[in-house]
């Protein structure tokens, strides 16, 4: 997670946090008029953005998604539940960029785009993982403070995130990636390798995140079904081990290899153009 905090040293990353947050909030707000459960959750095409932000802007995208969701809540739904929304949206953008390089060898093209079958498959897998984790966090928090039953909230948020991310995400990424790369705004180009966390424990981290997400989903659904009503600590306590696994796993997911790989490919491109 080193880069999550070290990125604040780069002015470009700070600006990207602000701009991503503003875009996310600005797209969230008009769609508050298309509710699924009025007052709680609406159709959110904007939910494709955190995943795309994460892949393009890395940690700046994660902070941007978290702040953008909070600002979106300011326009009518700011409550204690917004804390869960902040953390959940942070992870919705964090996991795609942290997990991306797990699926590629160092000598492979690791660019965070969906211009090949393998990359598209990885993207969809990461959308499902990040959607489940985001949903686990928000639904767990809403259940813990007695706002909304886990089961229904979880299903709705997964639906919103996965459908919007899976359908709109690839289109957005294909359209935006070349431009962002041309402008030199990819996080891998801004963050220095020494600012990125080491990739030594990446595999272990990835396993912990998957176990946390899948285990949390299964146990959460079972507990949510048994418990029905929120606020009586069944889901609240039962999911803590899985959320801890996700958190610890996220800390272990290093991205230095990814940053170095981009640096190497940029250096190679530079040499080619000189030759």
């Amino acid at each position: 997670m080193k880069e999550v905090f070290a990125m604040w040293r780069h002015t470009q990353m700070v600006v990207l946090v602000a701009l991503s947050a503003a875009i996310y909030a600005a797209v969230l707000i008009p769609f508050k008029g298309f509710p699924i459960i009025p007052g709680y959750i609406e159709l959110r095409p904007a939910n494709a953005f955190p995943i795309v932000f994460g892949l393009l802007f890395g940690p700046a995208g994660a902070w941007g998604a978290a702040i953008g969701n909070l600002i979106g809540d300011f326009f009518g739904t700011l409550s204690l539940g917004s804390i869960g929304g902040f953390v959940g949206n942070f992870f919705l953008a964090l996991l795609p960029y942290k997990m991306w390089s797990v699926f590629f060898r160092r000598d492979e093209n690791m660019e965070e785009n969906v211009d090949s079958g393998k990359k598209f498959g990885v993207f969809i897998l990461l959308v499902l993982l990040a959607s489940a984790v985001c949903s686990l966090i928000i639904s767990w928090w809403a259940d813990l403070i007695g706002l909304f039953p886990f089961l229904l909230f979880f299903a709705l948020i997964v639906f919103n995130n996965a459908i919007m991310g899976g359908v709109l995400g690839p289109i957005l990424l294909l359209a935006l990636y070349p431009r962002i790369k041309r402008w030199g705004l990819l996080w891998t180009e801004i963050v220095e390798p020494e600012d990125a966390s080491s990739s030594r424990l990446q595999r272990t981290g990835a396993i912990l995140v998957w176990v946390g997400a899948i285990g949390g989903t299964i146990v959460g659904l079972i507990l949510g079904f048994i418990q029905r009503a929120p606020g009586n600590l069944g889901v609240g306590l039962g999911l803590i081990p899985f959320l801890l696994l996700i958190l610890v796993g996220s800390f272990m997911l290093g991205v230095r290899e990814q940053v170095e790989s981009v640096e190497e490919s940029m250096a190679a491109e530079g040499e080619e153009s000189r030759a």
Partner: peptide, 9 residues
């Protein structure tokens, strides 16, 4: 970042 985002919305 928070106040700039709020202003940019």
């Amino acid at each position: 970042a928070v106040s700039t985002a709020l202003r940019l919305v």
